[in-house]
């Protein structure tokens, strides 16, 4: 445990620079996920997102979760000059291992699509299933994005389900607070 803590800053730097995308069990790269979520987009622009203290509070209130990070890896999707929406990249821990995922959001901060980039747990890969991911579409942080209340559990993968669902809800709240037009 001690060595983990010592390595934390290094890992965060690595995480930030590698965008958490260098895992072998990767299903999609961040770029592929953007294209999948916004197939009609012809440009993607990085949109470094920094939350202030007030925004963090709002995110916590909306999602019912700790806001966790100040900085969010965000990309804005455009078709020509028209803003289509955003893609936020994030990682959560399933049971033991990291799950990397991308949340596509409409410009109005409703969820457009979820993509799983990398999954390494022995159980619970079913979160990649399209029908499970579809449950998030069109929802906002305020309703229907809790396991057992709007999002169905996956038997044998409760922790992965719960943590990804919480992660998506937090990002939807971030979008509502900081991105919504």
């Amino acid at each position: 445990m001690i060595s983990m803590h010592k390595l934390a800053p290094l890992s965060l730097v690595l995480l930030a620079s590698a965008s958490g995308s260098a895992l072998a069990t990767q299903y999609l790269t961040a770029e592929q996920a953007q294209q999948t979520i916004f197939p009609e987009a012809n440009s993607f622009k990085p949109l470094p997102l920094q939350l202030n203290a007030e925004q963090m509070k709002q995110v916590e209130k909306l999602s019912g979760l700790p806001a966790r990070s100040v900085a969010w890896r965000t990309v804005a999707a455009y078709k020509d000059d028209k803003l289509l929406g955003y893609v936020v990249l994030d990682d959560v821990v399933g049971k033991f291992e990291l799950i990397s995922y991308a949340v596509g959001l409409q410009a109005d901060a409703t969820v457009r699509q979820i993509e799983i980039l990398a999954y390494r747990e022995s159980h619970g890969f079913e979160i990649r299933n399209a029908n499970w991911r579809k449950q998030f579409v069109g929802k906002t942080a305020s309703a229907g994005m809790v396991v057992g209340d709007g999002i169905a559990n996956i038997s044998g993968a409760t922790l992965s389900c719960t943590h990804v669902t919480d992660g998506v809800r937090r990002i939807a709240a971030v979008a509502q607070v900081a991105l919504k037009k």
Binding site: M4, L7, A8, S11, V92, L98
Partner: peptide, 10 residues
């Protein structure tokens, strides 16, 4: 949480 994520990477 972030520490947990970091720990999972390393």
């Amino acid at each position: 949480n972030a520490r947990k994520v970091a720990a999972a990477v390393t």
